[in-house]
Write a protein that binds this DNA or RNA. Structure first.
Ligand SMILES: [Zn+2]
Length: 281
DNA sequence: CTAAAAGCCTGTACGC
DNA sequence: TGCGTACAGGCTTTTA
């Protein structure tokens, strides 16, 4: 799911609700997830106060005094909240709830149909700061939080033959950009997704980076993109989907030149693009 | 019936 | 040698 904007939307909604709340209750489902808390992790977390909620790449980070509680949403994950017994019962009776945190005056749930997401606890003995956590998770430059400079990437990729789309989607290089936002950004930058990074001009890098930042920022303002499952913690769907120009629009007409949009598998992921408008490398 | 969907990890092969 | 990358496959449920 959730690429950077969707996790950012969850983070913004959750931070003010969870800050200074104490963890009273932890529950995990019996289904296998990508990762899940151990019994020891669950004991360690109980009674702890949440300092703040932040984001690293596509991870939601619940910061505790002695550890970081990480939630990843995979392809179909959602975070749900409940404020009273009625709401709690309602969510617990639905299928696909795999993690629960009970807090002083709110409950949060990880709902994940396909279970590509997961939960992980990193103790401060392993990572004592957000910076070292980012290293452990092998997460690259954050497009909206960090310095994201064309010249740096132009230099870094001068000898890298890899295609630009798989580079953008590589979380160890650039944080949080997945299939939707890589596809949309490259269209808006006018760059063919198969262009080898060492063939990109500095000007092309400038457009790519500018478009990534623009698309992500607007997407956050619109509450993210809902394809099927995604909602914010209050159940609201993301409206950025209506601003998609190419993603999911194979065989539609290009909004710029009216030609038919092409689709191609790049990195095992469907990539829609305009072969006429995306030549500016 | 098959294909595809927001992600990412693993194993193997290969080239610099 | 060793690192980065390419590619296939796997994980899983649901919907078209
Ligand atoms: Zn076009």
């Amino acid at each position: 799911m959730p690429e950077l904007p969707e996790v950012e939307v969850i983070k913004k909604s959750l931070n003010h609700r969870l800050k200074k709340q104490f963890i009273t209750n932890v529950w995990t489902s019996k289904f296998r997830m990508r990762s899940q808390l151990t019994a020891q992790d669950q004991e360690l977390v109980k009674g702890k106060m949440i300092e703040k909620v932040s984001r690293i790449g596509k991870f939601l980070v619940i910061q505790l005094p002695d550890s970081f509680l990480l939630l990843h949403f995979g392809m179909s994950g959602r975070l749900l909240i409940a404020k009273n017994n009625e709401e709690i019962k309602k969510i617990q009776s639905t299928k696909h709830v795999h993690f629960l945190l009970g807090l002083s005056s709110i409950y949060i749930f990880l709902h994940d149909q396909r279970r590509f997401g997961g939960v992980r606890l990193v103790r401060k003995s392993e990572a004592d700061s957000i910076v070292s956590l980012k290293k452990i998770l092998n997460i690259g430059v954050d497009p909206i939080e960090d310095l994201f400079r064309p010249r740096d990437f132009f230099k870094k990729t001068a000898r890298v033959k890899r295609n630009i789309k798989s580079y953008l989607m590589d979380g160890s290089k650039i944080a949080g950009v997945g299939n939707i936002y890589a596809t949309e950004s490259l269209f808006r930058a006018g760059v063919n997704p198969e262009t080898p990074t060492n063939k990109l001009s500095l000007a092309a890098w400038s457009r790519i980076i500018g478009c990534i930042q623009f698309v992500l920022t607007i997407a956050i303002k619109q509450g993210g993109s809902t394809l099927r499952d995604f909602t914010d913690p209050t159940g609201k769907r993301g409206d950025f989907t209506t601003n998609h120009l190419v993603y999911g629009k194979k065989n539609f007409n290009c909004v710029v030149c009216n030609a038919r949009l092409d689709a191609k598998l790049i990195n095992q992921r469907t990539t829609v693009f305009c072969k006429f408008c995306q030549k500016r490398n």
